[in-house]
Amino acid sequence: MHQVDHARREALKQGSATAIFGLFVAAGLVRPGTAHAAWNQAAFSAKTVDAVVKGLGGASTAPTKDVNWGSTPEIAENGAVVPVSVTSNVPKTESISILVEKNPNALAATFTIPAGTDPTVSTRVKMGETSQVHALIKADGKYLVATREIKVTLGGCGG
């Protein structure tokens, strides 16, 4: 359609994966070394929200409403790739983690937010079933949690 930028689409398709990744680095979206940062085994193998927080080095969490879920769906179109977008409105946000409660390992991603960076992250998570999805915000050394239910349905009966 006319709204779609076909030129940009084609350019990106033709560019190699390396080139695209390079572009992200150049734009400051990914800091060199991020991909090689130490793997937090404890956090990423945790089964519960509390265990993830512990794995990340925290002690307790408090609920927050200062999170904007952007284009995160209420019902997933495809459980295999559910887009999740989180913006933290909490001052001094240091990191944003995304947790899918019913997944075998709850923690899907952790993003470090360097000072002065817009605390907005987007990723895609895999979900096998309807679950609470948590945005875990570390701000000023404290952990805060916002929750959104994302439904994964069998589909096929609307309308």
Partner: peptide, 8 residues
């Protein structure tokens, strides 16, 4: 919910 209620 078109891609959910109808074939994606």
């Amino acid at each position: 919910y078109t891609p959910i209620a109808n074939p994606r």
